[in-house]
Nucleic acid binder design. Structure first.
Length: 271
DNA sequence: AATCGCGCCTGACGGC
DNA sequence: TGCCGTCAGGCGCGAT
């Protein structure tokens, strides 16, 4: 499941291979992703270069003079750089072949991802225009969370997973950040103190930062690799640890359901 | 207006 | 063994 660190690792990994390289062809084997992949890509992209590869939340933006390719990896998607002619497997849906011979391949078994072609200002696109701040930006801090949470009865976990509040905090990192901050996931956002929000913002930043750093170590062999860096290599404190004992206090980790998502917490460490 | 919960999709896994 | 039901998850969008 690509969370923000995986998306950032992917961005950094593919950029040197595709930046300012002319696209030779586009192959669409499966166009039914979250939204239909536009056929127009096949005639509008070849001959153009991506002059910038950026990220907004978990969206990747490949910017060319002809338009911007907007990509989301959903929860099972990946982008890899491969040599031309690499064998095609079951869920390899889209290839961008460059004049250099490199192929950027989009693979996504569950097809929750998307690939869209935006010909106007991408930041004005409905998918991007309402997004909250980047969690690693200075704008995102305890004061910001406090000001956005006034009066809200919504569970703090749902609150921080809302992309209008802050982007890129998925289920795993929401669970981990709340544990690291000693906050019960179901507590109303409006009842969290400034001090708690300051700690929470700090923990979200440090956890994401560490995961990006870990992902970065797999960048070396990014080409041709499966590109599965990130959180698996770090030790999770609560996520997926239902009925196991807390690594801090030894109490039993509990599983509950919040906003249709598995929520893990330590009843002793988190209040 | 704010919040909830559905549904998209496949693979892994457990039970019989 | 093999089949079938259940679950996981990001996130937009319709329902409440």
């Amino acid at each position: 499941m690509p969370e923000l660190p995986e998306v950032e690792t992917t961005r950094a990994g593919i950029t040197p291979h595709i930046i300012n390289q002319s696209v030779r062809s586009v192959i669409i084997r499966q166009s039914r992703l979250r939204w239909q992949v536009p056929r127009s890509l096949k005639r509008e992209l070849p001959g153009h270069c991506f002059h910038e590869v950026s990220r907004r939340g978990k969206y990747l933006l490949l910017c060319s003079t002809a338009g911007t390719l907007l990509i989301h990896l959903g929860m099972s998607g990946s982008l890899r750089i491969l040599p031309s002619g690499s064998p095609v497997r079951k869920h390899d849906h889209i290839d961008l072949e460059f004049e250099s011979g490199a192929v950027l391949r989009f693979t996504d078994p569950r097809r929750f991802g998307c690939m869209l072609w935006i010909k106007s200002d991408p930041m004005a696109h409905p998918l991007l225009s309402e997004l909250g701040p980047e969690p690693l930006s200075t704008e995102f801090d305890g004061d910001y969370l406090k000001s956005r949470s006034r009066q809200k009865k919504q569970a703090v976990k749902n609150f921080i997973m809302d992309s209008k509040v802050v982007v890129g905090v998925g289920n795993i990192y929401a669970n981990e950040a709340l544990f690291a901050s000693g906050i019960r996931p179901g507590k109303a956002a409006g009842r969290i103190t400034l001090i708690q929000f300051q700690l929470l913002a700090q923990k979200i930043k440090s956890i994401l930062h560490n995961a990006i750093k870990v992902g970065g170590t797999t960048l070396r062999d990014f080409t041709g690799s499966d590109g599965q860096p990130g959180y698996f290599s770090q030790s999770l404190m609560v996520y997926g640890r239902n009925e196991e004992s807390c690594r801090v206090c030894g109490n039993t980790i509990r599983l509950s359901r919040l906003g249709q998502r598995s929520t893990f917490y330590c009843p002793h460490c988190q209040r």
